[in-house]
């Protein structure tokens, strides 16, 4: 905890230094205290728009994550799907979200649906890819053991492949949580009347630079908290996966 506060303080100090060294131009780079004041002054506005963006990100995670899991499972269960669908999935990632965003707004409207679709589209691929890789990499020795135990293909998927792929799925979800705000905010930029992306665009047009920074800061904090919350949930759900960087694994003699 102390280390985290220290890291934030160092960042604030570097920010202040940058402001001081670049000629103290508040309309280009406002200092931290001006942004803090803007955060406080516009707290109701920021909370309102922040809640909308957060809801878009969360629903995007649910929809995109769910579709990613289903896609990986169908690829694993039905081999021809890998041949036909995988290039399609890769194509969804190759198209820049900025290019698809206007289309989605046109199809799904100005409201939240198009932003959720954007976020889901961005989250889908890391989840599907990480989970599918996990499903494919089941220990072959384990599969041999299952064969001598007369296990059906479905039972192997349910009892061996899926649980063994859960750490991979967890990595995919964590990447998804980190990139999800991109989808939501890009969607808001292209066409919307609410959300942090809309607020930033609006503030930028009216040269309310501190408010823009405040919205950016809020978005960053939301992304960090979301990532931390998902990591914590996954750690609790997968207690057998040891993080060997942070903690020592239990002793074995």
């Amino acid at each position: 905890m102390i280390r985290r506060v220290g890291a934030v303080l160092i960042l604030v100090a570097l920010w202040s230094l940058a402001w001081a060294l670049t000629g103290r131009l508040d309309f280009i780079l406002p200092p931290p205290w001006t942004v803090a004041a803007a955060l406080w002054e516009h707290r109701d506005l920021l909370a309102e728009h922040g809640a909308i963006t957060l809801a878009e990100i969360a629903l995007g995670l649910v929809v995109g994550g769910g579709m990613g899991v289903l896609a990986a499972l169908s690829l694993a269960l039905w081999r021809p799907a890998a041949l036909w669908l995988w290039p399609l999935f890769v194509a969804t990632q190759a198209l820049p979200v900025f290019a698809i965003a206007p289309l989605l707004v046109l199809w799904l409207g100005y409201g939240m649906a198009s932003k959720i679709a954007m976020a889901a589209l961005i989250i889908f691929f890391p989840v599907a890819s990480a989970f599918y890789d996990g499903l494919r990499r089941t220990d072959p020795d384990l599969l041999d053991l299952a064969r001598t135990m007369n296990a059906s293909k479905g039972a192997v998927l349910r009892h061996l492949r899926v649980p063994a792929a859960l750490p991979g799925l967890a990595s995919g979800l964590k990447v998804g949580a980190a990139v999800a705000p991109i989808g939501a905010v890009v969607g808001e930029w292209v066409g919307s009347s609410a959300g942090l992306g809309f607020l930033m665009l609006h503030a930028n047009a009216r040269l309310q630079v501190p408010l823009m920074f405040a919205a950016l800061l809020l978005l960053a904090v939301m992304a960090i908290l979301l990532h931390a919350a998902i990591s914590a949930c996954l750690r609790r759900a997968l207690p057998w996966v040891h993080d060997t960087l942070d903690v020592q694994p239990p002793a074995r003699d």
Partner: peptide, 21 residues
């Protein structure tokens, strides 16, 4: 390798064949 499944308890690992069938 012992091929014990890390997500199952010891007794459920012993019962793996029954689970798989």
């Amino acid at each position: 390798k012992d091929l014990l499944l890390p997500w199952l308890s010891v007794i459920e690992n012993v019962r793996l064949g029954a689970r798989l069938r």
